[in-house]
Amino acid sequence: MSIINIFFGKLVEWILFPFRGMSPWVGMIVLSLVTGIFMLLVFRLTSNQKGIKSIKNKIKAHILELRLFQDNLKISLSSQGKILKCNLKYISCTMKPMLIMIIPLILILIQMNLWFGYKSFSPDQTAILKVKLKDNYNPVETDIILIPSSSAIIVETLPLRIEEEKEIDWRFSVKENGVHHFDLKIGGWTITKTVDATTSHLRKISTIKVRKNTLDQLFNPGEAPLLKDSPIKSIELTYPNESMNLFGWHIHWIIVYFALSVIFGFAFKGLFGVEI
């Protein structure tokens, strides 16, 4: 689990490294360009290029047929049927590259969410720190102490314990910019959670720390996991969501990413001689 996370984490980090601190659009454009080209190459190597070409030609021919014989119901119906059949064949030709790409793509998206999904805290913002305990712990009977690293982060409430969820929450507020952290003392354990209140633009934010060697870890790879036998299942900070700003429109980053990679894919298919 850790190896996969480290590999994809480093990959995205390496691509975005020169663009840290810049507008997220720069990193987004570069990432979608690189992944778009990568997907093009995978597509060329794994798809049935010849098959795609001939199917596309056939579709073109049938469309022409439709136009020429638009007054003849029988022919136009049969050519429509053929177009449908070709479409299905086309999908089958692209199935293999799709299947090959889907897993790395999801892993990349998980990594990208760390970079584009959340905003760091700004001064005077409040948020919740959520601790989930293992099933055999009762939050009301568990002694747990939360220690802020400095006066830049202030715990504003007593712990709120939700038995049914095995959860303990605190509200805290951020007073100054910077990288801060909370230490959680539970049993003989001390666990640290970073609070990112920096002002720089594109940076990796890990909202949740989860346990090692769980499926959770695969989906939340932002930081070093908790040890398997720690009494805590996860620690989470409710960072505000980030969106991409396009002339005042707020768009989810994933939509921007898909739109840009499609654009780049089509723009470069000629250069790489790929039939899509």
Partner: peptide, 17 residues
């Protein structure tokens, strides 16, 4: 909270204490 005078409100996609 069973003892402390605090409450968490969860409404639509937001929660606050």
């Amino acid at each position: 909270d069973p003892v402390n005078p605090v409450a968490k409100i969860v409404i639509q996609d937001q929660e606050f204490i």
